[in-house]
Design a protein around this nucleic acid. Structure first.
Ligand SMILES: [Mn+2]
Ligand SMILES: [Mn+2]
Ligand SMILES: [Zn+2]
Ligand SMILES: [Zn+2]
Lengths: 138, 138
DNA sequence: TTGGTGATGCAACTCAATTGCATTCATTTT
DNA sequence: AAAATGAATGCAATTGAGTTGCATCACCAA
């Protein structure tokens, strides 16, 4: 449990408990978004509900964001920019690989403009691209 | 149960039973996508599972498409173009109104181009816009 | 040391989606 | 007309993710 990790949580106004540090550490290692089940498998010592509430807290405090990718399970990934207290400013698209079933955040891909009819008031959008990821393509 | 409806089903190779005709009739009346619960409420005589399987059949035969809009329930709407046997060619975006909670198909809105890195092989994308619909805006 | 607050664990519940199986219905075959 | 066949339907039950309630535990302050 490094000091680094603790400071991340403290900066986000989250009490750095043992479970939370482990969850954060795991999240930092990931290249793709994770599910609650993933977390459960990794941290088998902690209770499922505790992990669930940890994710909820992280999300509320702007540490992670949730992604509904069209599969049956919700995914979670670390936020890129500065998100705080439920205000998520890290809008970006996601890529779901139909081969390895992994979901990747693509913060560098420009979010496309939408030409909606004038009578629709756009507030936000979620874009999930599907296909083959770079790892599976080779 | 008009002849028209029957022919729609027959053209899609679906046996035009009473329940199926009622489901199709209901779908045709809708301006927004529906859920299984909606259908259950409307056709209270038919069993939930029958309605569920009807939707599945319709989807397989290219009569409707399913939409996961990020809410907890799956939505269904009639296909626009010619879709057949699970091959859905009616790619379009969807608009979820945060006020009336309705989900609208927007087949006329151009699907934006994505500038993915070369090492990602894009096959399809799902885009759900969220905001206020034209009915709620007035 | 004690009191209080937040974190955790365990049990139970909700709800959409799904499956198994028996029954009914429609159509064809004998 | 009766029997057989396969599809469609209804009912019961299960799955699995997500969620809530409540008791207990850990930690810090008074
Ligand atoms: Mn992301
Ligand atoms: Mn649609
Ligand atoms: Zn992949
Ligand atoms: Zn609306």
């Amino acid at each position: 449990m490094s000091m680094e990790l603790e400071n991340v949580l403290i900066a986000k106004q989250v009490n750095p408990t043992a479970v939370r540090l482990l969850v954060l550490e795991y999240l930092l290692k990931q290249k793709a978004a994770i599910s609650l089940s993933d977390l459960e498998t990794e941290l088998h010592r902690a209770d499922r509900v505790t992990l669930y509430r940890t994710l909820k807290t992280f999300e509320e405090k702007g540490i992670i964001h949730t992604i509904k990718d069209g599969t049956e399970v919700t995914k979670y990934a670390l936020c890129q920019d500065e998100c705080n207290n439920g205000l998520h400013s890290d809008m970006h698209i996601h890529f779901y690989c139909t081969n390895c079933k992994e979901l990747y955040c693509l913060p560098k891909v420009q979010i496309p403009k939408l030409n909606l009819p004038d009578d629709f008031n756009l507030q936000e959008m979620s874009l999930v691209a599907r296909g083959i990821c770079k790892n599976c393509k080779k």
